[in-house]
């Protein structure tokens, strides 16, 4: 199922935060939303999943407009802030969200064990989240997003604040999910992570300045570093 955005605009009060953004994420790809802090990545993700209404433009999953119950069942979302219940244990958080997707008890327990293992939190599953470190919360949040084996996964800066070793493991997980056919939309402000993705959508001040395969994006730069594309954008914006 492709995700199509067409001329999407969003303002918060007087400031336009997303400006006329159009692009299509093909099913089964990893699409990277890349941009400096404040460029509108989080807002764009919230628009795509239907947590925010767009001022104009359309967002469609296949032929369906969001929000839609049938699609919500197949969608996984990891917000940028941790969005966890601090007074519940890791297991308690997972059991709660698993229950909301109506996973049968057996499957649910097996999946909880599986994802806890995936994010290396099995030893801490009974601990209350308020006693977790920042990185542990991030991992638990990721575990919740993939718990119900969604077809489409939205991840808002999933690797921020995670150490390099675990970061590599997590990206390996994303590749494994992709291999199973999951479409992944992942935002990041870490330019290096783009090489893990199929497509890169470069956001700058709410505008989509580039959208292409990562290989072609890298070819466009002289140095082979994606930052250069942002420098070019900032210069052209300064001129205009």
């Amino acid at each position: 199922m492709d995700i199509q955005l067409s001329r999407v605009n969003k303002r918060f009060g007087d400031t336009a935060v997303i400006k006329d953004v159009s692009f299509t994420v093909a099913a089964g790809e990893i699409c990277c939303l890349l941009g400096p802090s404040g460029s509108g990545k989080t807002t764009l993700i919230r628009l795509m999943i239907g947590a925010l209404p767009a001022d104009s433009g359309t967002i469609q999953f296949g032929d369906t407009e969001m929000p839609n119950m049938a699609i919500l069942k197949r969608l996984g979302f990891m917000p940028q802030n941790d969005a966890l219940y601090e007074d519940l244990s890791a297991q308690g958080n997972l059991a709660f969200f698993g229950g909301l997707y109506h996973l049968p008890k057996r499957t649910r327990e097996a999946r909880i064990a599986e994802v806890l293992d995936m994010v290396e939190l099995t030893d801490h599953k009974r601990k209350l989240v308020k006693d977790f470190s920042g990185g542990m919360k991030k991992r638990l949040s990721l575990a919740i997003a993939i718990l119900h084996e969604p077809d489409i996964l939205f991840l808002d800066e999933p690797t921020a604040g995670i150490d390099p070793v675990l970061r590599r493991k997590i990206w390996a997980q994303f590749q494994a999910l992709k291999a199973q056919g999951t479409t992944i939309i992942v935002s990041t402000h870490v330019m290096d992570e783009v090489v893990e993705c199929d497509k890169g959508a470069l956001l700058y001040n709410g505008r989509l300045i580039e959208y292409d395969t990562v290989d072609r994006l890298l070819d466009k730069t002289a140095s082979g570093r994606i930052e250069d594309l942002f420098f070019a954008a900032s210069e052209s914006e300064a001129r205009s």
Partner: peptide, 13 residues
């Protein structure tokens, strides 16, 4: 404020 409500609303509840 913690964002759990937004997350909750992104499940089929």
């Amino acid at each position: 404020s913690r964002g759990t409500l937004e997350r909750l609303m992104m499940t089929p509840i």
